[in-house]
């Protein structure tokens, strides 16, 4: 039977790592004191991992832990590329050793992040360039019909009936009456707009912000364009 009350899951967190360059506790205390004095609130109860990679083998682990806790850090454990024996010793002393192949991983992450950024830039470029193209629908869109312009603007030459739905990742233009539902900027595009010759819609939505008919009273049955102004839907008369 599964344990309903608890569940183990892996998560990644950003932890502060304190790199030690000396074993002289007095020096460490001095430098730590200076650092913490600059921003005491910031460091208060911050979980911290101590990296012992750059110091010689015979470390007084207990003393380091106590020193760290003196400054109100929350001690998590030790890290660093050290020998197996050393890790074993750390464990035996009752401290946790946090595993990280530091240099490699950080490089990998950097590379992966760079790739991600490039990919995002690429897709954004595609999406943006596509947003300048139009899907044109000639004729009325009837009740029960749905037209979606993926990564495009939607131009309807005709009316959108009550009970019909027009969706675009870009803008929506209706050369006729808009009586159904219109959803512009469907993938999240706060500059998307909705234009129609006669606003009698059941619902209009831009980037997730929506209005039902009752919010459209001001420009009901008028030629209107609808846009977002500081994440607030706004309608303006076209003529």
């Amino acid at each position: 039977m599964a344990d309903a009350s608890i569940e183990f899951k892996g998560s990644s967190f950003t932890l502060s790592v304190l790199h030690l360059k000396t074993l002289v506790l007095a020096d460490i205390r001095n430098d730590l004191a200076k650092k913490v004095a600059q921003a005491p609130d910031f460091f208060y109860l911050v979980p911290i991992v101590v990296n012992i990679e750059k110091i010689a083998s015979s470390v007084d682990y207990q003393a380091i832990k106590v020193l760290i806790e003196e400054f109100n850090f929350t001690f998590v454990g030790f890290t660093g590329a050290v020998s197996k024996e050393q890790r074993k010793l750390i464990r035996e002393l009752g401290f946790s050793f946090v595993n990280t192949t530091k240099v490699e991983t950080s490089q990998k992450i950097a590379i992966a992040e760079e790739a991600l950024v490039k990919e995002a830039e690429k897709t954004a470029a595609i999406a943006l360039s596509k947003l300048y193209t139009d899907k044109v629908h000639r004729g009325q869109i009837r009740s029960g019909q749905q037209v979606y312009a993926k990564d495009q603007n939607l131009v309807v030459i005709g009316s959108v009936s009550a009970g019909a739905e027009v969706i675009a990742d870009g803008n929506i233009h209706v050369y006729g009456s808009l009586r159904g539902r219109a959803i512009a900027g469907a993938k999240g595009h706060h500059k998307a707009q909705i234009y129609c010759q006669k606003l009698e819609a059941e619902l209009v939505s831009i980037n997730g912000n929506y209005w039902l008919s009752e919010s459209m009273e001001q420009h009901w049955s008028s030629p209107v364009y609808i846009h977002l102004n500081d994440n607030e839907l706004t309608s303006s008369k076209l003529i």
């Binding site: 004729g139 869109i141 009837r142 009740s143 029960g144 019909q145 009936s161 009550a162 009970g163």
Partner: peptide, 13 residues
Amino acid sequence: VRDSDRILGMLAS
């Protein structure tokens, strides 16, 4: 009228 509109959509598709 709404139902007729729906049927018109069906006729067209």
